[in-house]
Amino acid sequence: MDREAQAEAIREATAAMADRMAAEKSVLTDLDSAIGDADHGANMNRGFQAALERLEDADDDPATLVKTVGVALVSEVGGAAGPLYGGSLMKASGELEEGVTAESSVAFAERYLETVEERGKASVGDKTMVDAITPAVHTYKKSIEVDDCDPLEALGKAVDAAERGVAFTTPIRAKKGRASYLGWRSVGHQDPGATSTLYLLEELLEVAREHLDGDVETDAEADVDPEELAEPAAGGEVDESANSDGGS
């Protein structure tokens, strides 16, 4: 997949994510009403609509496109999700300067996770988006580097891992974010940020399926659709199995 195709896949993934945020607006806001400030759905929807608009004038370069999405989210989302999603995409986009490959997508995912942890000062078990991103990123990396999966299969496993991470947020007590003010009353509610991360990863996987099917390589030179892979890391969603064509 050449850079142009990667850019196209990134644009499609962003559009799919924007559609999903619009569709899930009230679901996310309801989750946030229970343990937060009831604005997550509206904020994410506004941010992704702004991202779509800004992509119209952006250059067809993978790193530039992802960075553009990040900048839009930082300035338009508001709340903690703006700096967490947007700032992390901005920083991680630097890993895609040479294009999207299996390797660069792993680097992108790791940088994204690292930036979210640093900015939010959150760890696994705090009932935040980190609980979805961490298993997704670790699974993605292991699937590619250890299990020799192609990026599409690895992304599918990552989405599954993120889904389990989202489920894990329900029974635990929040230690970071607005929900932490509720103490034990946060128990029993699914975390909104982990949930939106999963939704975004699911969309990334869907778009990756369309672009990578039957066209996947895993070596460093491969022009895989890594881009898409990379983005999911940021969002973090779950999905069924990513079986599709492995890297053939």
């Binding site: 508001g78 903690a80 700096p83 700032g87 900015r119 607005r178």
Partner: peptide, 11 residues
């Protein structure tokens, strides 16, 4: 003041 103010100030 609260959480996102910290992150946005750092940014």
């Amino acid at each position: 003041d609260l959480g996102s103010a910290v992150m946005n100030a750092e940014l």
